[in-house]
């Protein structure tokens, strides 16, 4: 049976933690999460890993495999040549708890600050597929936070103080484009959400396991809505003259 070599990060902080090498037998259809489970069962029972569904739907098993943010349960072992090491490490952008587990609580704090869905009191709840299709794409999000992890604004520049990150731009887009929503989040998107920090370099889109076109369908359309309200003098003037369009 083929054997794979895994280098897994072990430790409770990056300074003292280190990579430990394991040999794992590879079976057909095996994914990286299976290999970690093998290590837990047969070699080191105290390897910490967070997971739930093993079906790429709960968003728990996010990690970095050979330097790329990925779901461990969606990364197949046969994707790697048999003579190479597979390096598995925790998400870099969030504080480490232990081994492969990070603390992603910051994301939930950010989420709370977004104005929730706000329909009119007397809303007519009939709407058509074409009105909701854009929003449905965003609703596929499984909150794996891989996009948050890879985004250089958070990862390299650590601007968690000023930028909500792609996941929450996706959520905001889903609310802003909803045909029944009446709230306006554009100003807060510019000032507190920090949408201008995103330089549309698309790494979030590259890693999203749900194939959400984060940059093209959520962020850029939102950036254009911000331009309408804050950077386009003609549009701003028209709005002044004719009044804000009812949402």
């Amino acid at each position: 049976m083929r054997e794979a070599t895994l280098k897994v990060f072990r430790g409770t902080d990056y300074e003292t933690g280190e990579f430990k090498t394991y040999k794992v037998p590879v079976e057909d259809g095996m994914v990286v999460l299976d290999a970690i489970h093998y290590i837990q069962k047969e070699i080191d029972p105290d390897v910490a890993v967070r997971w739930n569904c093993k079906a790429a739907k709960c968003g728990s098993c996010s990690a970095e495999v050979n330097g790329k943010p990925a779901l461990m349960c969606k990364t197949r072992m046969d994707h790697f040549a048999s003579d190479t090491e597979i390096q598995v490490q925790p998400l870099k952008t969030f504080p480490l708890v232990k081994d492969l587990v990070t603390n992603v609580a910051w994301n939930y704090e950010v989420n709370k600050k977004i104005t929730p869905f706000t329909p009119a009191k007397d809303a007519d709840w009939t709407f058509f597929q074409e009105d909701i299709e854009r929003v449905q794409e965003f609703r596929k999000c499984i909150e794996c936070f891989l996009c948050q992890d890879v985004c250089h604004v958070l990862r390299d520049h650590n601007r968690k103080d000023a930028f909500i990150g792609p996941r929450f731009l996706v959520r905001t887009a889903g609310l802003e484009m909803h045909p029944l929503d009446k709230a306006n989040r554009i100003e807060s998107l510019k000032d507190h959400g920090g949408i201008g920090f995103c330089n549309i370099t698309k790494c979030c889109t590259e890693v999203c396991p749900e194939d959400i076109h984060i940059t093209d369908n959520a962020i850029i359309p939102l950036k254009e809505r911000v331009v309408d309200e804050f950077y386009d003098p003609v549009m701003m003037l028209l709005k002044k003259i004719f009044g804000k369009k009812q949402k």
Binding site: T12, D13, K92, P95, L96, R155, D156, N158
Partner: peptide, 9 residues
């Protein structure tokens, strides 16, 4: 929560 935040890459 803060002790192990990674230094910027």
């Amino acid at each position: 929560q803060t002790k192990s935040a990674l230094a910027p890459q």
